[in-house]
């Protein structure tokens, strides 16, 4: 067992975990925070996306022991205009991927604001690409939605990103 200290949504938490326990399982099974979802458990679907010190990661491929001392934000700690926008624009049907979509979009908007390029950014040495629908789709491609609510998701993200 290894002692791991996390700040989860602003609250200090201490847990003893085996080294093989993922951050996702630590959140869900040890801390009882089931808002973060387990989809593929292999980094392919994005349902488990959380923010670590503000950066989006797949918590299923993260070992909890590697995140000792870090600030973790899960959907339970999110209060963001994206949530209302997803409701407004039908950005989900069953809702299973939504916590990951919201956390991913928050991280993505921060990356874009910091000037990070994407695979569809034409001017790599420019000041930063406008967040077009193509840019949103590329930057959010790590989050799958089996219900196919992608158009609503793009609408919601575009609205919150603003002009």
């Amino acid at each position: 067992m290894v002692e791991v200290r996390l700040r989860v949504n602003g609250t200090a938490r201490e847990i003893d975990v085996e080294p093989q326990v993922s951050l996702l399982d630590a959140l869900r099974e040890r801390l009882g925070m089931t808002g973060t979802k387990k989809g593929c458990d292999q980094g392919a679907c994005g349902a488990c996306t959380v923010l670590a010190d503000g950066e989006r990661i797949c918590s299923c491929l993260a070992l909890a022991v590697q995140y000792d001392g870090r600030e973790i934000t899960t959907i339970e700690g999110v209060d963001h205009p994206l949530q209302a926008a997803f409701t407004e624009h039908d950005g989900f049907q069953c809702g299973y991927c939504t916590p990951g979509q919201i956390c991913s979009a928050i991280g993505m908007l921060a990356e874009h604001k910091a000037g990070a390029p994407s695979a569809v950014t034409e001017e790599l040495d420019g000041d930063g690409a406008e967040l077009t629908d193509d840019e949103i789709r590329e930057r959010m491609s790590g989050n799958l939605c089996r219900c196919g609510a992608y158009n609503g998701i793009v609408d919601a993200v575009r609205e919150v990103a603003g002009p």
Partner: peptide, 28 residues
């Protein structure tokens, strides 16, 4: 991929990295 020196001196490297995996995985 976001590094200014990499983007201006060897765009092929920034583009290759950006074409791999997803935003979440590239952060890890």
């Amino acid at each position: 991929a976001a590094d200014p020196l990499v983007r201006s001196r060897c765009p092929v490297l920034a583009q290759a990295v950006l074409n791999g995996a997803s935003g979440q995985l590239r952060n890890m």
